[in-house]
């Protein structure tokens, strides 16, 4: 699992590569984003090739933490495999999901300036 941050349209995007399972979930859980706590982040899932329940736990945990601080997490570019895990666990109810990173960041920025 590789985690890399960059800024796109003034919004922090977290790019994930690799598998997100029991062995790699702690890496994501302990990841400290450079974005201010209340700033929105977009997680680019396009290169996540596997996700299990621990990985989901890390994503949900990260999102909950962010929301407690007044921020928002948006997901972008899920592949079919990952989407199916979201589907069976009904986690999709918790997230805004985009099929494009750029559109996700534009909307996250819009939302932020509106506040």
């Amino acid at each position: 699992m590789i985690i890399k941050e960059n800024v796109c349209n003034n919004i922090t995007t977290i790019n994930l590569w690799g598998t997100l399972d029991a062995t790699t979930a702690p890496t994501l859980r302990n990841f400290k984003s450079a974005a201010a706590p209340a700033d929105p982040v977009v997680i680019n899932m396009s290169d996540v090739d596997f996700l299990d329940s621990s990985g989901l736990g890390a994503l949900v945990g990260l999102t909950r933490e962010k929301r407690e601080q007044g921020g928002e997490v948006t997901l972008a570019c899920m592949n079919n495999k990952v989407r199916k895990v979201f589907e069976i666990t009904q986690v999709y109810r918790l997230f805004d999901i985009y099929d494009d990173v750029e559109a996700a960041t534009i909307n996250a920025e819009k939302k932020q300036t509106r506040l």
């Binding site: 989407r83 109810r93 999901i97 985009y98 494009d100």
Partner: peptide, 23 residues
């Protein structure tokens, strides 16, 4: 293909969420 939206999403937001598909 398939995708998820939130119950409160308006049509315009839904189009944006599927930006790549609609473009």
């Amino acid at each position: 293909s398939y995708g998820s939206i939130k119950s409160s999403d308006e049509t315009l937001l839904i189009m944006e969420k599927n930006h790549r598909y609609c473009a």
